[in-house]
């Protein structure tokens, strides 16, 4: 059973890490980091079998952040999990920092793949799942995509191949916040019906409230029982979740909060401990 309070606490801490790191960097992507926070918290603090003391552990579950611009959320999850001192991530985006604007697997323990160019992380996750099958491993590969990201053609090539090779060890989660840089998905480039698209591509599709830890945990557990096909969990989320003035605002996709905005955001997230 998921310890909801523990995951919620981790998520709240991560949200503050994200805001502070992006604020210190003076640039970054708060909106999509905050929409993905509860998903990442549920994966790292409930679902995934990983070991910060042994990041390369043989039978670990793997996570690929295909929407690489949510890097601060991944760094916060890894830091809070104990892969490194979470305070190190305040060097985000600064010259010489390992905390690149988008994740670099060569620089940070626990980062399984370098991502940032949309759609590519999804393909690499298919490769990891394929390798898992080849090696007879029971572990899973989790991959997080943005909803704008699925406008990339490679996503559908990858989706086709994952179903073709019956990769039931692959679980994709869609951070379905409905927004992208230029506005609403519906206006920029229609992505719906997402459910039917993935279903017709041969995936087992589930839906969840992407901010309901219990429901996310439940769907991730259900995904364990799916056989013969990959799983897509469409997580309905709110961009900028947890910070009132960022919520559901496309303008906060790729903008850092100023000093006042940072203070207000931290206050809304429960303040400094």
């Amino acid at each position: 059973m998921v310890n909801v309070d523990e995951v919620k606490k981790a998520a709240q801490d991560m949200r503050k890490d994200i805001i502070k790191a992006i604020s210190a960097a003076g640039s970054g992507h708060p909106g999509g980091s905050l929409s993905a926070t509860d998903i990442l918290a549920t994966l790292y603090f409930y679902k995934m079998n990983v070991n910060p003391a042994d990041p390369d552990m043989e039978n670990r579950d793997k996570f690929v952040l295909s929407k690489g611009h949510a890097a601060p959320a991944l760094y916060a999850a890894l830091g809070r999990k104990g892969y490194f001192d979470v305070n190190e991530m305040y060097s985000l985006r600064k010259i010489g920092s390992v905390f690149q604007g988008h994740p670099d697997m060569k620089k940070i323990p626990g980062v399984e793949m370098s991502t940032g160019s949309l759609g590519q992380g999804f393909s690499t996750a298919v490769g990891m799942a394929l390798a898992g099958k080849l090696d007879g491993r029971k572990s899973k590969v989790y991959v997080l995509l943005g909803d704008g990201e699925i406008q990339e053609g490679i996503v559908w090539e990858a989706a086709m191949s994952a179903a073709h090779y019956k990769l039931d060890n692959l679980v994709a989660i869609l951070d379905n916040n409905g927004l992208q840089i230029d506005g609403r998905n519906d206006d920029v480039m229609q992505v719906e019906p997402i459910y039917e698209k993935f279903e017709s591509f041969g995936w087992e599709v589930m839906e969840a409230d992407g901010h309901d830890i219990e429901e996310l945990a439940e769907k991730l557990d259900e995904a364990d029982d799916v056989e013969g096909k990959p799983v897509m969990i469409i997580a309905r989320t709110v961009k900028g979740k947890g910070v009132s003035f960022m919520e559901d605002e496309a303008g906060w996709h790729g903008k850092a909060p100023n000093v006042e905005e940072t203070a207000q955001a931290i206050e809304e997230l429960g303040g400094e401990q």
């Binding site: 690929v64 793949m113 590519q120 393909s123 394929l130 990858a158 191949s161």
Partner: peptide
């Protein structure tokens, strides 16, 4: 068992190749 035809989808093939390589292949 160690050959994968990825269909007419070169971009995905090289992405999947990266994932396999990251897993030690």
């Amino acid at each position: 068992e160690r050959f994968f035809n990825m269909g007419i989808a070169e971009q995905n093939m090289y992405g999947v190749a990266a994932g396999l390589a990251a897993s030690g292949k």
